[in-house]
Design a binder for these strands. Structure first.
Lengths: 223, 223
DNA sequence: TTTTAGAATAACGTATACGATCATATCAGC
DNA sequence: GCTGATATGATCGTATACGTTATTCTAAAA
């Protein structure tokens, strides 16, 4: 007999110290707890986690590779910042990738997929906590693309979304961004229901580029 | 007087030890010197570079984040391997991104840009050294996309190309892959000369997906 | 008062060292 | 002779420690 292998806790999956630190730091950056440009002291982080500096440095190096932090020679790491044109470029790529993802997903959507996406849209629309909007938004979007079964593409989209999560947050909060998103989500869902892949792709593309434009209007508080 | 400040070597630009190790290891993986699944001993690498293990581990962590190596708990790092469906997905994203890149680039191409791309194509076509084909191929492709001025997109494309460089190499060497590539490069260039952005995008997309199909035929030597 | 030189302090980058874990080889038992 | 347990060796993961670099504070001179 198989000993109930599905219940066995996966040994060897115990996260290493550097992975724990990595997850926490990334979450703090994505959520905006650590502001753009904020210095991340190694000894400081090490003390907080009660570990040595080595796991902290390893986590920071991974975050550097992911584009979340920038190392300044002999001056430590800071939360990476994006200039306004860089943000625009990221959104452009987002629009491109997510449009393609939904185009691939629509023909493969089952009623269950649609139901999950609709539920996610409802949760996003009804979310009262502003600080949770970005996360709920991602849950909806990922539910839309999941049916495509493109793990690599999904990972890429996820990572790019994380990169601009801080700005997504502000976009959703300014000038009815959340409201606009809700209506556009409904339009996208409608297209999915009718199996109109191209339309869904176009709507998704415009949805994202619209958010980008909204950002470029409200963000440039550059002093 | 300025003491010839233009000749002063820029201190502070001196790469850290971990960066040196990172570059060498990545180059070794991309070039195929380190085979898929090859273990990368930390002490071994540290001895070769005459440094301690810490910079080596930091370099490996960055390579892990970039997808080039995989850490096995308490068993060290190995060169990451891609399954055949994973390769197909990477090529799919490549096709998507590079088609979009050239579509954005064509309207902005100057005669100088075209000349550079044509020169790169000629160098690729005339390259006698098989081991240099992948590098020459990238030089041509990047010359095509550069006019778009999309740094973020270019970086993404570059990284994804590096991920599959090992397979690109085999694709170019099997069954006239290099010859096919040369003729398709000429077709793409021709479309660019005529400012047909959509056509160039389609050709680029097919160029990459064709390589993917060629790979899926010749690669599956899975035992 | 402003500016600059110098020293002290804090943080970073790396080396060395040690406990923990896994692979391999040897040996006892069936 | 083969299976299983144990011991040994090697490697990994992390902590501690040290030299180096940047920053800041102070003091002196313009």
């Amino acid at each position: 007999m198989t000993l109930g292998l599905q219940d066995v806790p996966d040994l060897g999956a115990a996260p290493s110290t550097s992975q724990v630190v990595l997850r926490h730091l990334r979450a703090a950056i994505v959520s905006g707890d650590l502001a753009e440009g904020a210095p991340i002291g190694q000894d400081d982080v090490a003390r907080r986690f009660n570990v040595s500096k080595i796991p902290v440095r390893e986590a920071l190096k991974q975050l550097e590779a992911e584009g979340f932090v920038t190392f300044l020679r002999n001056r430590g790491a800071v939360v990476a910042s994006l200039s306004e044109p860089e943000i625009a470029q990221v959104f452009e790529v987002r629009a491109m990738l997510e449009a393609q993802a939904i185009k691939l997903a629509v023909p493969l959507m089952t009623p269950e997929h649609l139901a999950r996406a609709e539920a996610a849209a409802a949760v996003f629309a009804a979310e009262p906590d502003v600080s949770q909007w970005a996360a709920r938004n991602w849950e909806f979007h990922s539910a839309l693309y999941a049916p495509a079964g493109r793990d690599f593409l999904m990972g890429l989209i996820r990572q790019i979304n994380d990169r601009v999560a801080r700005f997504l947050r502000v976009q959703l909060t300014v000038s009815g961004g959340h409201f606009h998103a809700v209506t556009e989500h409904h339009e996208i869902l409608s297209a999915c229901r009718q199996c109109k892949a191209e339309l869904a792709a176009t709507l998704t593309h415009d949805h994202i580029m619209g958010a980008c434009r909204s950002l470029s209007i409200h963000l440039p508080r550059k002093d």
